[in-house]
Design a protein around this nucleic acid. Structure first.
Lengths: 135, 135
DNA sequence: CTGAATAGCTTGCATTTTGCAAGCTATATA
DNA sequence: TATATAGCTTGCAAAATGCAAGCTATTCAG
């Protein structure tokens, strides 16, 4: 049985799926880096704890935002991939980046911020190209 | 002293400010309805509890996403308003709505979904127009 | 001017989620 | 065979969330 939404508002529904401190960071890592393993996520600068990461990956998988595949060359590894639906979050992530970089000093360079604001669609296109082979 | 960010990633910084189950719903209500009182938020369909609402409003205020003003005609009421920075979240909220309505049945009509996808900037413009007098 | 109603909270307490550290199991590598 | 590594799980403390009740200041009705 699937968890009930708080309301039928599209914003509320989105937050039911990704409205926590970690889910969108997992999606971010996949968008920018391609398919990743468990320990790849652990290496991100925010330092997610393994139990939290397990819980987020399971939740994203059961919401059909990511899938899990055995790594062929190393049987210990799982490969986590975005689904089409997860990849569609590229627009959300890029919009959030625009908003943050407008008001806060971030790791982005001035050139990157300029590109983000003048051609956000290009950044989304790069992410889509990166994932094209896996969908 | 201001709370430390988990990292300098713009996505992470945004989530430090609005990455919880309620903040963006408060912003949504303001974007769509204009200045609101405490009980206006309590009337939204998700049913936020008063202690949570107090905490969210205080946090959004100290992040400079909203401001608080005495209602002139009724001294019991506070009026909560978006700042320029809070209003800039219109793009994020509209993008989230697009994403949700692509995959889930929401309260939006087919016409509204069509408009949202063909001219998302119009919805943002309506929100900006609504807030123009308060900034 | 008094009493009832209303707005915006606060408080207490139970439940859930998050966070940290340690450890466990299966696979891979030397 | 032994050692290391990947991907977890477990235990426990701390923080956030959720629910119900109650409190204070302002307003309104008579």
């Amino acid at each position: 049985m699937t968890k009930q939404h708080r309301s039928s508002c599209p914003v509320s529904i989105a937050l039911d799926l990704i409205g926590d401190r970690w889910s969108l960071l997992v999606v971010r890592d996949l968008l920018f880096r391609g398919p990743l393993s468990f320990s790849d996520f652990e290496g991100s600068p925010e330092g997610i704890a393994p139990n939290i990461l397990t819980a987020r990956l399971r939740a994203l998988e059961s919401s059909s935002l990511i899938t899990r595949h055995r790594n062929e060359s190393d049987g210990r590894r799982w490969e986590y991939r975005l689904t089409t639906r997860g990849l569609d979050l590229a627009d959300v992530v890029v919009t959030l980046m625009q908003w943050s970089s407008r008001y806060e000093q971030t790791i982005l360079t001035a050139d990157e911020v300029a590109l983000l604001n003048s051609a956000p669609g290009e950044m989304v296109a790069v992410m889509r190209a990166r994932w094209k082979a896996y969908l």
